[in-house]
Design a protein around this nucleic acid. Sequence first.
DNA 1: GCCAACGTTGGC
DNA 2: GCCAACGTTGGC
Length: 154
Amino acid sequence: MNYWLFKSEPDEYSLSDLKREPGQTGRWDGIRNYQARNFLRDEVREGDGVLFYHSACKVPAVVGTARIARTAYPDPAQFNPESKYFDPKASSDNPRWFCVDIQWQSEFPRPVPLAEIKQNPQLAEMVLVKQGRLSIQPVTEKEWKLLSKLGGAG
DNA sequence: GCCAACGTTGGC
DNA sequence: GCCAACGTTGGC
C-alpha cells in the first residue's frame, strides 16, 4: 500500500466538498501536469492512502485523509469542449489525462499547517517541502503516520 | 497581488 | 535540439 498527498484549493474543492459527495466519493480530475499524471496513471492503486492538502488559501495545511476508491481512468473533462480542462489534443483512442476516484476518510481534529511541516526535521524530505508545485506526490509511511499523529488522528 | 520556481511550447 | 518566451502553481 502506498501513500500520497493530493493538493486542492479549498475554494475549488475542499475536504468538506468531498465529504458531501454521494458515498463520500468524488472524482479527482483536472490534473494537467505530466509528473502528477504519471503518478496517477502508473502508481496510484485502489486502497492507497491520501493526505488531503488545502493549497492557495490562508493557511495551507494537511486537513485530513482519503483513500483511493478507483484507479486511473481517462479524465472525461479532456474530451468536453465546454470544460476548462478540455484538451483538443486528446482523443478517446489516445487519452492524455487521467483521473481517479477518492473516498473521504477522516478530517484531522487539528489541521497541520505547511509552516509546521517545514519546521519539523522529520518531514524535511517531503516533496511538499522540497518541490513546491506538484499537486500529486508520494508520501512515505513514516511521513503518513507522523502527519496523522500531528493532526490528532492517532 | 507579487513573484519565484519550474514545466511546456514553439521558432529557429 | 536549444533556449527564450510564456503560463501555471502556490507561498507569502
